[in-house]
Design a binder for these strands. Structure first.
Length: 276
DNA sequence: AACTTTGCCAACCGCGCCCGG
DNA sequence: TCCGGGCGCGGTTGGCAAAGT
């Protein structure tokens, strides 16, 4: 069926997302990253299709968008997901399924790709280890399920309650075995545990968390250019301080980083600088 | 030390949705 | 209302690094 669609699409002359000839693929170089960062910081995000041409990149727009959203965005967090974030992902997945972008929207600084990868490589295994089906979030133990007369939806909420309860009980725990092997750095997210604790204990907040389309936590960096009176993008106001860092010599500036936003942006730019 | 296997993650692919003409 | 272009999303893959033999 899918192949049929492809055949029809190709027969109808479906245009490729980009001109395959002369379009580079594969890993991005530091030089390409620099070009893309400079362009986005200068012009904001608009019309990805035009970005490669305007930025002087031999990439398709799609590739540029992916590179920016998954790797170059200044608000991205680095490193493994914390226990609290992991728990949030599990709970959100139980509600939303594989809608990674929706899940990612509730975890500022994390991308859908990152969460998807983390789910497939870590969380899936953990859940299976715990005897929980990572797809349905139901227990894999047939006997247990047969004794349990509740509907799948009810069971799902029970699973959620268990997860939430575990968070409340243990602060960070979802799997004691995993906890015993996790590094102190990973377990040092006391603030996040407290945050989760307070969130989970607030029923109305939890409900709004599942139902609202707005992110649970504020998006730190909305790089989408906001039109002010239909004219200049307000985005430039938000990041004008970053425009001065185009050569990545950020330490030459007398930054007084008072916010996580700025420190995250600095980390990203610093990383980029090291790679150059 | 050399080779193989496994794990991880960045990047690609293709489909579906949305919006403007 | 229809059509086509562009973008976003989710699934999949390729390649590198670490671990195992």
């Amino acid at each position: 069926m899918a192949s049929l669609k492809v055949c029809i699409a190709s027969a109808m002359g479906r245009q490729p997302c980009c001109d395959k000839l002369g379009v580079k693929k594969g890993p991005w170089t530091a030089e390409e990253d620099k070009k893309l960062i400079n362009f986005i910081l200068t012009n904001g995000q608009c019309c990805w299709r035009a970005v490669p041409k305007l930025a002087g990149l031999r990439r398709c727009g799609k590739s540029c968008r992916l590179r920016w959203t998954n790797y170059l965005r200044p608000d991205l967090k680095r490193g493994l997901l914390t226990q609290a974030e992991e728990q949030l992902v599990i709970d959100l997945h139980a509600r939303l399924g594989n809608r990674w972008s929706k899940i990612a929207a509730r975890l500022p600084g994390r991308t859908d790709n990152e969460i998807k990868n983390h789910w497939n490589t870590h969380i899936k295994k953990k859940l299976l280890k715990m005897g929980i089906d990572p797809v349905t979030h139901e227990t894999l133990n047939k006997e247990a399920t047969s004794q349990n007369s509740s509907s799948p939806a009810e069971h799902l909420s029970q699973v959620d309650n268990i997860n939430i309860h575990q968070v409340k009980e243990n602060g960070v725990a979802i799997n004691s075995e995993e906890n015993s092997t996790s590094s102190p750095a990973e377990n040092s997210s006391g603030e996040e545990s407290l945050l989760m604790d307070s969130i989970c204990s607030d029923v109305s907040l939890m409900n709004s968390m599942w139902l609202d389309e707005t992110p649970l936590m504020d998006t730190l960096w909305d790089t989408t250019p906001k039109l002010e009176n239909g004219n200049l993008p307000m985005w430039e106001d938000n990041c004008s301080w970053l425009l001065d860092c185009q050569d990545f010599g950020i330490h030459d500036f007398d930054f007084n980083c008072s916010s996580e936003i700025e420190s995250n942006a600095l980390q990203t730019l610093d990383l980029a600088r090291k790679e150059l």
